[in-house]
Computed example of a mutant assay.
Amino acid sequence: MTTMSAPVDVLPDLVSLKVALDGPVAEVTLLGPSKGNAMGPDFWRELPQVFAALDADARVRAVVLTGSGKHFSYGLDLPAMMGGWAPLLAGDALAGPRTEFHTEVKRLQEAVSSIAECRKPVVAAISGWCIGGGVDVVTAADIRLASADAKFSVREVKVAIVADIGSLQRLAPIIGEGHLRELALTGKDIDAARAEKIGLVNDVYEDQETLLARARELAAEIAANPPLVVQGTKQVVSATTERQVAEGLRYVAAWNAAFLPSKDLAEAVQAFLERRAPEFKGE
């Protein structure tokens, strides 16, 4: 497998992602650089650039998306991303800070949606932890596979946030509304066996090496089919769902811009930084 320079030949030097090409299959690997491939500013800037380039590159017919190291992603890199939230935590956020936050949420949403909007089918290969923003990302993929050690969590409720980057919109067609409500309202962790049972992942493999081999084989199987028909099939299957997703994303961006600022959010952030359990009061 050779590293690509980028239309994938016009990509700038990447920090948070690595892109490699093996015949018609591109492989995108999350690099971090934060622990557990946490998603900081570099990731949110680079993700839409990479998937726009993959969409435009005629050589690419399918994509494998995975994480480096033991984990797919710990999700949003809170310390790295908190700077833009500071005005909301001050207590009296007016229209200006709320508008800026709304714009930022939409930017992150569009970054994740670049995966769903890429005409090339995307196979997510998930090992270890896949938390919060990691779930947003894999639900935007077409097919999800996991290794036996994979664990998933829609954890935003535990940090006083309504998940707003795509999980609440994309999970229901995948796992059903009942399972979505359970995961999103509890913030609980589920293992790979439960994820397979509810349809979050198609198959579970014994280890990361086997998982990656199978993901590459599946992507190659897709890539062997007529490319325009494959792309058309993805677009037709996604047409109704993505219209509903777009409406839901608009709604949650507006909702969070209006209601996110709270004492509970400030408490969640402080508890995170102090590595203690938060005490929520509904304020």
Results as ranks from 00 to 15, higher is better:
residue 1 M to F: 02
residue 6 A to W: 04
residue 9 D to Q: 03
residue 10 V to G: 12
residue 12 P to L: 03
residue 16 S to M: 07
residue 19 V to R: 02
residue 21 L to V: 13
residue 24 P to G: 06
residue 27 E to H: 04
residue 28 V to M: 06
residue 30 L to M: 12
residue 32 G to P: 14
residue 33 P to Y: 09
residue 35 K to S: 15
residue 37 N to I: 03
residue 37 N to M: 06
residue 40 G to A: 08
residue 41 P to S: 00
residue 42 D to W: 10
residue 42 D to M: 09
residue 44 W to F: 14
residue 45 R to W: 06
residue 47 L to H: 00
residue 49 Q to K: 04
residue 53 A to M: 07
residue 55 D to Q: 10
residue 56 A to F: 02
residue 58 A to R: 12
residue 59 R to C: 03
residue 59 R to L: 07
residue 61 R to Q: 12
residue 64 V to A: 09
residue 66 T to Y: 06
residue 67 G to P: 13
residue 68 S to V: 05
residue 71 H to S: 05
residue 71 H to N: 12
residue 77 D to T: 08
residue 78 L to W: 11
residue 81 M to E: 14
residue 82 M to N: 12
residue 83 G to S: 06
residue 83 G to Y: 05
residue 84 G to W: 07
residue 88 L to G: 04
residue 90 A to G: 07
residue 91 G to F: 01
residue 93 A to C: 07
residue 96 G to R: 11
residue 96 G to S: 05
residue 97 P to D: 05
residue 98 R to Y: 00
residue 101 F to W: 10
residue 102 H to Q: 10
residue 104 E to Y: 02
residue 110 E to L: 14
residue 111 A to Y: 04
residue 112 V to C: 09
residue 113 S to E: 13
residue 117 E to H: 05
residue 117 E to D: 07
residue 117 E to I: 00
residue 119 R to H: 10
residue 121 P to W: 05
residue 126 I to R: 01
residue 127 S to F: 05
residue 127 S to Y: 01
residue 128 G to D: 01
residue 130 C to P: 08
residue 130 C to H: 04
residue 134 G to P: 15
residue 136 D to K: 10
residue 142 D to R: 03
residue 142 D to K: 08
residue 143 I to F: 00
residue 146 A to P: 14
residue 147 S to Q: 03
residue 156 E to S: 13
residue 158 K to S: 14
residue 160 A to R: 14
residue 160 A to I: 15
residue 163 A to S: 15
residue 163 A to D: 15
residue 165 I to K: 14
residue 165 I to R: 15
residue 165 I to N: 15
residue 165 I to L: 15
residue 172 A to W: 01
residue 176 G to P: 01
residue 183 L to S: 02
residue 184 A to H: 06
residue 186 T to P: 01
residue 188 K to G: 06
residue 191 D to H: 00
residue 192 A to H: 01
residue 192 A to F: 05
residue 192 A to N: 04
residue 192 A to S: 02
residue 194 R to P: 02
residue 194 R to E: 08
residue 198 I to K: 07
residue 200 L to R: 06
residue 201 V to K: 07
residue 203 D to W: 07
residue 203 D to P: 03
residue 203 D to A: 02
residue 204 V to P: 11
residue 207 D to F: 01
residue 208 Q to A: 00
residue 208 Q to Y: 06
residue 210 T to Q: 08
residue 215 A to K: 00
residue 218 L to R: 02
residue 222 I to L: 10
residue 225 N to L: 15
residue 225 N to C: 11
residue 228 L to Q: 05
residue 229 V to W: 05
residue 229 V to P: 06
residue 229 V to T: 11
residue 229 V to I: 11
residue 231 Q to W: 04
residue 234 K to M: 09
residue 238 S to F: 02
residue 240 T to S: 10
residue 241 T to Q: 13
residue 243 R to F: 08
residue 246 A to N: 10
residue 246 A to I: 08
residue 246 A to E: 11
residue 248 G to Y: 00
residue 250 R to Y: 05
residue 250 R to H: 11
residue 252 V to P: 02
residue 252 V to W: 02
residue 261 P to R: 03
residue 262 S to K: 13
residue 268 A to C: 09
residue 269 V to G: 10
residue 270 Q to H: 13
residue 272 F to I: 15
residue 277 A to Q: 14
residue 279 E to K: 15
residue 280 F to N: 13
residue 281 K to V: 13
